[in-house]
Amino acid sequence: MEYIYAALLLHNAGKDVTEENVTAVLNAAGVEVQDARVKALVAALEDVNIEEAISKAAVAPVAAAPAAA
């Protein structure tokens, strides 16, 4: 989840979630950054309204029922 928290941190701080910014934050945390994961994250977030995703999270807490495999 490091990458996600980095994105959320940036978003909350009012910064753009760019590859550069995410990498900088992760570096500061001493994380060995994998460019591919940063790229994938930023790409996935392109069409997503982070604010909305956050407010939805308020409604649905984490724990949930398991799905059979």
């Binding site: 989840m1 959320l8 994250l41 996935a44 977030l45 956050i54």
Partner: peptide, 22 residues
């Protein structure tokens, strides 16, 4: 596994936020 895709990244964020709130 935190593999963000367009379809799931919102849910992943939601999970992270919920965890942070917890």
């Amino acid at each position: 596994a935190v593999i963000p895709t367009r379809l799931t990244v919102a849910a992943i964020i939601g999970k992270a936020v919920s965890e942070a709130r917890n």
